[in-house]
Design a protein around this nucleic acid. Structure first.
Lengths: 233, 233
DNA sequence: TGTACATCAGTGAACGCGCGTTCACTGATGTAC
DNA sequence: TGTACATCAGTGAACGCGCGTTCACTGATGTAC
């Protein structure tokens, strides 16, 4: 048969290992993720975990890939939920809020992909694909904006920056002028900077209503990307 | 005598412990900081370190306080180096570049105060004072901007956000309108977001000249705070 | 200025703990004929 | 459909390692008289 009992059980236990690892990471941090502790909680002997993941780093890699996929899926879903596709500000806000919500619900996974690097761990190439998923969501908003004349396209850039962005534009085959890419990148940084600030506790004792603050900041950011409600030309 | 030999030697060894700890943190990360490893490198028996720091967490706290102090001092120095005090954009750029340079020179210490929190560690109250040092630098730029009519003061804010910022303004006894504080806070986030992105490797394979990119971003940010070269009124 | 005592830095052994990974093994599940 | 063999999941013991922290101790430095 296509999926044997063995294969099904294997997939289930693989998921259980990852789930338990995620939960433990929330308490101990990524650096403290321990195969033995995971095995103990599942009720397995520690060496049994090696039937599923050849090493601790491979488990970490799997968690990172899952996290990128999850935040990417959350962003895609939020973007798709906005029915009026020319409402770029609405799409931006939906994606921004989705990123924040996902991060608040999965703080340790967010830290895994957006916090300080895990010491001694080098991410393999496998993580690059899933990582670009959430980035692509923003890029699509910019592409649609350019296509419908809903985004400012002007602006000057220092040569070095323009060159780097041209490289990016050509690699991804985007029809988006460099200044738009530049503002998009800054908005991206503002989004993840805001989420990290909130999550890592930098807003403590300053902002009591981080949701309202986040929304206001992202609205201003939308404005600054140069997103418009009606065609410019 | 005021400082005995014992006291002088004590201060020297305390510094040596912190220096070695900083160097090891760069390799192992904050979570992997180990009293035993530090003692080993210094050539001390591990229990001797307890004459200087009552526990591993106290050593971490000392490193955090030092890091806040160092980045604060770097920011203050950069701000003070701009002789024309009404050149707010120049002051902002100087401080931003100083923060970035310090972070690049001391990546593990930057991560310690701006990266994901160290698991299992709760920062004591002692860190609050040093932490506000760098924040105060930006606030002074805004205060001077308002005093000399060099910064936009208008803008609307949702009630909850305005309320939070009013609290901040009153606590710090600042004569700065809430919208200015709001934009300042966003600029602050943009600055640390940009440095973190660069340091934690998110710009890899996208930006080859991160210095130029950083400068261009911070210039745009200065513009967006509403800093002007000449009085508005 | 000299001496007796108190303070303090550093030693070395020990406690009790956890970690990643390897390896020979048992017994259950799956596959080919 | 039944049987022989191959594959695979999980076991339990072991290797070699590092960690934070405590404690009784020695010997040097500092202080009071």
């Amino acid at each position: 048969m296509a999926t044997t009992t063995r294969a099904r059980v294997r997939a289930e236990i693989t998921n259980e290992i990852k789930d338990v690892a995620r939960r433990q990471m929330a308490e101990e941090g990524a650096a403290g993720l321990s195969l033995r502790a995971v095995a103990r909680e599942i009720g397995m002997v520690s060496s049994a975990v090696y039937r599923y993941f050849p090493s601790r780093d491979d488990l970490l890699t799997a968690l990172i890939i899952d996290a990128y996929d999850a935040i990417g899926a959350a962003g895609e879903e939020a973007d798709a939920s906005v029915t009026r596709r020319t409402d770029l500000v609405g799409r931006w806000m939906a994606v921004a809020r989705a990123v924040r919500s996902w991060a608040i619900e999965h703080p340790s996974e967010y830290a895994l992909i957006n916090g300080s690097p895990v010491p001694g761990y080098r991410a393999p190439q496998d993580t690059i694909g899933p990582a670009s998923r959430i980035t692509s969501v923003l890029v699509r908003i910019l592409v649609d904006g350019v296509a419908h004349d809903l985004v400012e396209t002007g602006g000057s850039l220092p040569g070095a920056v323009r060159g780097d962005l041209r490289g990016m534009r050509e690699r991804l085959e985007l029809s988006v002028p460099e200044p738009v890419l530049f503002r998009g990148l800054l908005a991206w940084q503002q989004l993840f900077g805001a989420v990290s600030f909130e999550l890592f506790g930098q807003l403590h004792n300053v902002i009591d209503d981080p949701g309202a603050y986040f929304d206001a900041g992202m609205r201003l950011t939308a404005d600054r990307i140069g997103l418009h409600a009606r065609p410019i030309r």
